[in-house]
């Protein structure tokens, strides 16, 4: 998976929220050999002891800060600027949502924030819907990576509109495309890779599993399986039946 010129051996970006403990998070990172994690910025409070920051640095993963929860372009821009200084990276996972209920990306504000952030030298990874025009606009603004949702954040409903996601993949073959949000099962991950997506960003599916490390193991195995199956050369889909047994020599034929 290539992200703004940097190659990653693993194609999973891991969210860091909601794990039963920091140790479980670190174990999942180790099991998956994850090279990139996403983190947020929130108000510093009395309970903070910098331990999360230290933990993430200890993991040696590339940090992908996000603008989760931002409702306007300006909020997202300022959050990105604070994150850049805090984490010393130009990478930003841009999330500008329409509302707190659906957490649906705002097309207008995501485009507005992307334009501004790219001018400020950021490497923007925008979180989008599966709307083709939306993603095309972001590509034209200079985004090298785009992250369409599979379905709503934390819903676990998987890829709700595979045809729309397929169109994005087919129309933008050179872009790094990462499914962000909606993953709930291993089968969703496999489906995304079989459609030609480059990576997956997931959090809730793993952190809220009863046994996150078990899920991480299963995910690792599934990544090996789906990668091997794709490189084996999958058969094309056909609209009509094709017999697997030869029709030559079939008995009882006149």
């Amino acid at each position: 998976m290539q992200i703004y010129g940097q190659n990653f051996k693993t194609n999973i970006i891991l969210g860091t929220s909601g794990y039963p403990s920091p140790k479980v998070l670190l174990n999942c990172i180790k099991i998956l050999k994850t090279e990139m994690v996403t983190v947020s910025v929130r108000r510093l409070n009395d309970a903070d002891d910098n331990s999360f920051f230290k933990l993430i640095k200890k993991s040696k993963c590339t940090i992908l800060p996000n603008t989760a929860g931002c409702l306007s372009a300006q909020e997202a821009i300022v959050t990105a600027e604070m994150a850049r200084e805090l984490f010393e990276t130009d990478l930003i996972k841009l999330e500008v949502i329409e509302d707190d209920l659906t957490l649906k990306p705002s097309i207008k504000n995501t485009i507005k924030a992307t334009e501004s952030l790219i001018k400020k030298g950021f490497k923007v990874l925008p979180y989008t819907t599966d709307d083709f025009k939306f993603t095309k606009t972001l590509e034209s603004l200079g985004c090298e990576v785009i992250m369409p949702w599979g379905s709503q954040i934390g819903s676990g409903r998987g890829l709700e509109n595979p045809e729309k996601l397929m169109k994005i993949r087919e129309e933008m073959p050179n872009l790094t495309l990462i499914i962000d949000a909606g993953i709930g099962r291993i089968s969703h991950v496999c489906q995304a890779f079989e459609m030609g997506y480059d990576g997956i960003l997931l959090n809730t599916a793993i952190s809220k599993a009863n046994y996150p490390e078990e899920f991480a193991h299963a995910l690792k195995l599934s990544l090996e399986a789906v990668t091997k199956s794709i490189s084996s050369g999958l058969i094309p889909k056909r609209n009509f039946a094709t017999p697997s047994t030869t029709m030559i020599g079939i008995p009882f034929k006149r």
Partner: peptide, 30 residues
Amino acid sequence: NNEFVPKSKYKNTIIVKGDIIEVVSAHPGG
């Protein structure tokens, strides 16, 4: 006041009554 202030400008940024300061740190996120 909804504008980023880099570390290098802390000393020269004067806070007056009514100003809104946000101080953020790293937190878990997805």
